[in-house]
Amino acid sequence: MGTLVGHVAPGFAFLLLGLWHLFNHVKLHLLHPNSYTSSPWFPTSKIRYIELFLIMVGSSISISMELFIGPERHQPFDPDGTIPSNHLHNFEHSAISMTFFVYAVFAILLDKTAPKAQYDLTQFLGAVAFAQQLLLFHLHSADHMGVEGQYHLLLQSAIVVCLATTLMGIGMPKSFMVSFVRSLSIVFQGVWLILMGYMLWTPGLISKGCFLHLEEGHQVVRCSSEEALHRAKSLVNLQFSWFLVVISIFAVTFYMVLAKFYGQKVEYSTLTGEESLREDSDDVEFHKKSRVGDSQSFVQLGKVHSTIDIER
């Protein structure tokens, strides 16, 4: 991170992952509204673990970029083996990627060896990954007091929602809205990272009165006055608000579109005799018919006993 590509690339990864989850959760809920149960990841028919493999590949690329490809010496340490101050953020970003890598690896292992505990433990590891991300962005070593800091502050709010809904999903696996909001928050996180990359490292998009300045080996946005800084932060807040509205509209529209394709294939469960009796227990006509049926059965029973007595 710290560059346009460093924000846009992981942003696209979160965006695609969020859309994949959003699609599958909505589809699963539309097809099985009565028996819907959330899933921390979704297999495909051809390659079962493709989602988890892609997370592992993306995390590995991110770690390599932060620690070996990005630095000028292609390694993040000083000649004496210590971590230089300007590379602290590289280690922080790589730690986030490492946590998501661990999540994906153990999700595969749990699916193979512990299917009964798979859901809860996989959700737990996902929560750990989001908690790690929130912690390191909140206690970031880079200077996040200016415009970049405002972007990161609002990014943390999306991560908080990801973390909260992941933890809630452990106790409420049948709640569609928990899964829906979690997927949408991952989408939002990806979109916001992409926006950050372009708005902070494209000179033509930087707020009026602010400029790019090279500090400690990377470029940061600085403003010429307090008024310009205040204006730039206010514009960031407006962008967040606009994106929140747009993504909310997208989410509901996305659900309605999928409902047209999958809503006609709703799962219907067959009721047993006792269940159908309970379903109709509130029907007045049903009770009347039951009473008539009962009286007829008693009459028939009496006739049978009378016939037996005559024969004797």
Score class of each variant (00 low, 15 high):
residue 69 I to S: 11
residue 264 Q to K: 14
residue 138 H to R: 08
residue 275 E to A: 12
residue 118 Q to L: 02
residue 37 T to Y: 03
residue 299 V to Y: 08
residue 112 K to L: 15
residue 58 G to N: 08
residue 266 V to M: 13
residue 118 Q to P: 00
residue 156 Q to V: 05
residue 237 N to E: 05
residue 141 S to I: 05
residue 137 F to R: 10
residue 22 L to A: 12
residue 292 V to G: 05
residue 235 L to M: 13
residue 158 A to W: 13
residue 294 D to P: 00
residue 46 K to C: 07
residue 25 H to F: 15
residue 97 S to L: 08
residue 42 F to M: 06
residue 143 D to V: 03
residue 151 Y to T: 13
residue 146 G to F: 01
residue 140 H to D: 07
residue 116 K to V: 14
residue 242 W to F: 06
residue 130 F to T: 09
residue 2 G to L: 10
residue 209 G to Y: 01
residue 121 L to M: 09
residue 243 F to H: 13
residue 32 H to Y: 11
residue 119 Y to D: 00
residue 303 K to M: 15
residue 205 L to A: 04
residue 249 I to N: 06
residue 257 V to W: 09
residue 153 L to H: 07
residue 301 L to F: 09
residue 254 F to Q: 02
residue 262 Y to H: 05
residue 213 H to G: 00
residue 261 F to M: 11
residue 228 A to Y: 07
residue 299 V to F: 10
residue 243 F to Q: 13
residue 271 L to V: 05
residue 120 D to T: 11
residue 245 V to W: 06
residue 21 H to R: 10
residue 255 Y to I: 05
residue 277 L to Q: 15
residue 88 L to T: 11
residue 66 E to P: 04
residue 123 Q to I: 01
residue 198 Y to G: 12
residue 204 G to L: 08
residue 212 L to S: 06
residue 299 V to A: 09
residue 64 S to R: 04
residue 200 L to E: 05
residue 46 K to R: 13
residue 118 Q to W: 02
residue 227 E to Q: 11
residue 244 L to F: 10
residue 204 G to S: 10
residue 167 L to H: 00
residue 156 Q to F: 01
residue 164 A to W: 04
residue 243 F to S: 11
residue 304 V to Y: 14
residue 78 D to H: 04
residue 260 K to H: 12
residue 138 H to Q: 07
residue 51 E to F: 00
residue 221 V to E: 00
